[in-house]
Amino acid sequence: MTPIVSYKNITKAYGELEVLKEIDFDIYPGEKVALIGPSGSGKTTLARLLMTLEEPNSGTIEVEGKGLWHEEINGKLVKANGKHLREMRKSIGMVFQHFYLFPHMTVLKNVMEAPVTVLGLSKKKARLQAEEMLEKVGLGDKLDVYPAQLSGGQKQRVAIARALVMKPNIMLFDEPTSALDPELVGEVLEVIKEIALESDMTMLLITHEMDFAKEIADRVAFFNEGTIAEQGTPEEIFNHPKTPRLQTFLSRFNP
């Protein structure tokens, strides 16, 4: 099977600090991959590169067989232009740690906005899809409410609906529950789990919720200091960790 996402020899640095060091990483269609590891180990950067929020210093990323940050024109590799990036982004959606809802739009408008302006859907059609999606994340009764009046968990569920309604092939979840009060984590995980189980979307999930990763992931990758220190099935990673670094990391979650 050919990978849907392929990182090849990716290095990303902020000034002197290398956050990703020559990473090679493939993700296969429909696969649910969980990225775990300490803060600052490079997991979030891996997702941000794929969402084109940041550019790698070296290496290439391929999505559905095409270069993400570069394209081939007359057999030569050139830096991707805005048009190419927009084309590539059609396949990718992202949910952020801090939601980033549009505060000046109601819940419904938040979800309708991109289908109307980006995909050019009619308002009526976009509205139907948005309502359906909000129903699915359990917020069918909050359509006309502004984000400021929602709890963190509700905000994140709106953000998930907003990303899903664009029908991406690949969904990135960047620590979707890390900014939430503990009692609100469950409702968001529940929604993500449901999506993971019922759809064949490829999912990349960065999380500190180990039980959750164990439950939904096909594969888990452990990041440490800008490299993938260990990867495998949830069974291998959580029950039989090989490297001492991973053992220490996991021991913090199961005292």
Partner: peptide, 20 residues
């Protein structure tokens, strides 16, 4: 973060400015 959300939703620069 608002800009990032717009990029993730694949808006153009003009759309991002005007709408968000």
């Amino acid at each position: 973060g608002q800009t990032e959300a717009c990029i993730a939703l694949n808006m153009t620069k003009v759309q991002r400015m005007r709408r968000v």
